[in-house]
């Protein structure tokens, strides 16, 4: 199949859209990072803040980076499915098919047939979380090491959990809090609230601990170079090598694992809280009333 000029142009545009946001993030990082000596561990830089009645709205580095990752991910999805057609096998289309198929299987195995339509959502969470954590490889501030980002996702998942619990009837949902005995009500409420908090803290804590340990080791190696070579060699030679090896674990492995675990917990919580029998009973009643 000969590719037309238009097809190629769109391809190049999409590739540019994939890479440019990340490059833009790196440029912003280089321009705004305050130069300082020693160990630097702090939150995201805040670019702008808007006054709101309850709490100021921050536009921080994490917000910017997560938006950039989002643009890049969208471009990646468009690139992989660009010009997709039945029968024609192309490498990127095969990759796209593999991604769709494996998430479909994951969702089917863990959530059951009722939640088949959840596969795009789960895939989006997986890709977004993984790419956010991996963005620290190019020196960006990973959005997942800011608590606000991850808590936002967890809150979204909490809303979904409650929505699917309410499908069994509002009365049944309220009654669920007073089981097995009414005395347990406060404990049940705490358990309900703990779900998003524990989900977000797990993701955030893992990524944050990785970046803290990496920063500590890098600065320690810099100090060691200064102690060993003194004024002879100003370049921190000992910083070469070890931080890169550690980053394979802390950035790549930990980030991908946490993305998988977050998606997995989303699936299990949503499908676990859904009262399937009550829902079926309700649907039958509704159908009877209509008939």
């Amino acid at each position: 199949m000969k590719k037309s000029l238009r097809f190629k142009t769109v391809d190049i545009l999409l590739i540019a859209l994939m890479i440019l946001p990340i490059a833009f993030g790196v440029v912003v990082r280089v321009l705004t990072k305050p130069a300082a000596e020693g160990v630097q561990i702090g939150g995201a830089l805040i670019f702008a803040r808007f006054k709101l009645p309850l709490q100021d709205l921050f536009f921080s580095e994490a917000t910017l980076n997560s938006l950039l990752v989002l643009v890049s991910l969208t471009a990646m999805a468009l690139y992989m499915t660009h010009g997709i057609r039945a029968g024609v096998k192309c490498r990127r289309h095969l990759i796209a098919e593999w991604i769709v198929e494996s998430t479909d299987n994951l969702v089917k195995n863990n959530m059951g047939p009722f939640f088949r339509a959840f596969s795009p959502f789960i895939c989006a969470i997986l890709g977004y979380s993984a790419l956010s954590s991996l963005s620290s490889l190019v020196g960006l501030f990973p959005p997942t090491s800011d608590f606000s980002t991850v808590f936002g996702w967890a809150l979204l998942v909490f809303v979904l959990i409650t929505y699917y619990k309410l499908k069994g009837g509002t009365w049944n949902y309220v009654k669920g809090y007073f089981e097995p005995i009414p005395f347990f009500a406060p404990l049940n409420v705490i358990g309900e609230i703990a779900t998003p908090i524990s989900m977000s803290f797990r993701h955030y804590g893992n990524i944050l601990s990785g970046s803290v340990i990496s920063a500590l080791i890098a600065s320690a190696l810099g100090g060691l170079t200064r102690a060993v070579f003194g004024e002879v060699c100003r370049v921190p030679v000992l910083q070469i090598g070890l931080p890169a090896v550690l980053s394979i674990y802390f950035d790549v492995f930990s980030g991908l694992l946490q993305a998988f675990i977050f998606a997995m917990l989303t699936m299990l919580n949503i499908s676990g809280g859904f009262p399937e029998e009550l829902y079926k009973k309700r649907m039958k009643k509704k159908a009877k009333r209509r008939a």
């Binding site: 797990r202 601990s209 675990i261």
Partner: peptide, 24 residues
């Protein structure tokens, strides 16, 4: 096992977050 480990890790992560907040 990885799922179980991640869930078992939660309390440790809470402690880590508390420690990091206390230091920084």
């Amino acid at each position: 096992m990885i799922m179980g480990c991640a869930i078992a890790e939660t309390t440790g992560i809470y402690a880590l977050v508390v420690a990091i907040l206390l230091i920084f």
